[in-house]
């Protein structure tokens, strides 16, 4: 100890009003926000996100993809909500564009957290960048904390990599919805599920094939061949084709009126997941049918 004599007074700060502390809602005990910080507890960085927004998202949203948004009022203005969307594109542009749509079009814009595979937490570079722009590893406990405790908007892609790695010929065909963990998470948190149908990302970054040797060498989850990648170098992953984007937010599905502990009922969870998958698939078919041109909408 080289900081002078230690103080001998009690180290515990007691609060007289704590009579029944055990029953207190843990939600009130979340750490406060420190205004001096630019990074939040999830590792999300205002500075990096602002930079990405100015340099990439603005350009892609307004000029390149010319995003058209419908049903933004279906995203609740407060409280937690789980957004569920189809997933596509080698380096998927859909997540950031949905986030940007909420920021641009909603009356009360809020940050959107995107869940990504645990894989990215272990991959150098991705591990550093993804949390800074609002990505969170898809752990049920993370989704639970964001939805129930912090009352945030969370976006999940239940198809996962099966969606983003699928070939161009399978476009707009929704893949299997995993184990429907996202429905159980929303039920536990008692928050609504907002299905989202997004058209355009399939054509913006079509995948024609995979190189399994390079996949193994780089340790990535897949190594795609797109119009610009790999011959254009790693940054060519951002070389999207200028397809017209259309984002449609569908009416929210309530999960708080399904009885006691509905997440215990596996068949109910699967049914809700199937319904949501079907509604997104139908919507996509409608949207593609109504589209006159891939590039002009």
């Amino acid at each position: 100890m080289d900081e002078g004599p230690p103080s001998h007074k009690s180290l515990v700060q007691r609060e007289p009003e704590d009579d029944a502390p055990a029953t207190r809602d843990l939600r009130d005990l979340l750490p406060g926000i420190e205004p001096e910080r630019q990074v939040n507890d999830w590792g999300r960085s205002e500075r990096v996100e602002g930079f990405m927004d100015r340099v990439l998202y603005d350009f892609y949203y307004h000029l390149w993809f010319r995003c058209e948004v419908e049903g933004i009022e279906n995203v609740p203005a407060d409280g937690g909500a789980l957004l569920v969307s189809n997933h596509s594109g080698a380096l998927p542009p859909d997540g950031p564009m949905i986030g940007k749509a909420i920021k641009e079009e909603h009356d009360r814009p809020r940050p959107l957290y995107m869940t990504v595979e645990h894989f990215f937490k272990g991959y150098p570079g991705f591990s550093m960048l993804l949390p800074k722009i609002g990505c969170v590893p898809a752990h049920p406990a993370n989704v639970q904390r964001l939805l129930a405790d912090e009352r945030q908007l969370v976006l999940v892609f239940p198809e996962g990599r099966k969606g983003s790695e699928k070939l161009y010929r399978d476009r707009y065909r929704l893949q299997r919805f995993g184990r429907a963990g996202f429905v159980a998470a929303a039920m536990r948190a008692g928050v609504p599920i907002v299905p989202v149908a997004l058209m355009g990302a399939e054509e913006a970054a079509p995948i024609f094939g995979h190189i399994s040797l390079l996949k193994r060498l780089t340790g990535l989850i897949y190594f795609p061949i797109t119009p610009t990648f790999p011959h254009g170098g790693p940054l060519a992953m951002l070389g999207y084709l200028p397809a017209k984007f259309k984002i449609r937010f569908l009416p929210p599905v309530r999960t708080d009126d399904l009885g006691e502990e509905p997440w215990q009922d596996r068949s109910l969870v699967q049914t809700v997941a199937q319904d949501i998958r079907a509604s997104i698939q139908e919507e996509l078919v409608d949207m593609v049918a109504a589209r006159k041109s891939v590039w002009l909408g």
Binding site: H118, V136, A141, R145
Partner: peptide, 11 residues
Amino acid sequence: QDDPAYFTEDM
């Protein structure tokens, strides 16, 4: 790698 962002006591 596959840890939750916050560990609770029951994990």
